[in-house]
């Protein structure tokens, strides 16, 4: 994995967060499976697994092994880059190149939940937990 040369957009998101985090996410429950679809501009899922399955697996795949075509989605499974929880949290908040930022569409707690989920599944076994306060501190000022 190349390390980010320029964490995309870090500086430019400030304007955007305020308006959106206040918008309450709403959900519409799926007809047949009980799965949730969001109805607003933010994601409605609350727990880490539901968030992974609603957002991250679209790119990183259900088994978190990533995928390769003309471009690629890196594996999150067995990924040593997740050792420091702040790194995946920063990536989710601010985005990274082709990965869009989710800081506007997820609140601090949701980001903590999904990062904790990824860091403790798919062959990752990091014990420490990320809390919402830390996520807050990673948001662009």
């Amino acid at each position: 994995m190349k390390k980010p040369k320029n964490p995309a957009g870090l500086r430019f998101l400030c304007v955007l967060t305020a308006a959106l985090v206040t918008t309450t996410a709403q959900a519409q429950s799926d007809l047949s499976s009980g799965a949730v679809f969001s109805t607003g501009p933010s994601f409605a899922q609350r727990d880490g697994r539901a968030l992974y399955e609603a957002i991250c697996q679209g790119c990183h795949m259900p088994d978190a092994k990533g995928a390769v075509g003309a471009g690629r989605y890196p594996a999150l499974a067995g990924n040593a880059n997740l050792a420091a929880a702040r790194y995946p949290a920063t990536v989710v908040v601010n985005g990274l190149r082709a990965m869009p930022a989710f800081g506007d569409q997820l609140d601090d707690q949701q980001i903590a939940e999904v990062v904790n989920y990824v860091r403790s599944h798919f062959g990752n076994d990091f014990k420490d937990l990320l809390d919402a306060g830390t996520v807050k501190s990673l948001r662009p000022k």
Binding site: F37, S38, F43, I55, Q57, G58, Q105
Partner: peptide, 10 residues
Amino acid sequence: FGPNAYEFTS
């Protein structure tokens, strides 16, 4: 577009 597009992609 937006969240529903991510959810359907998944």
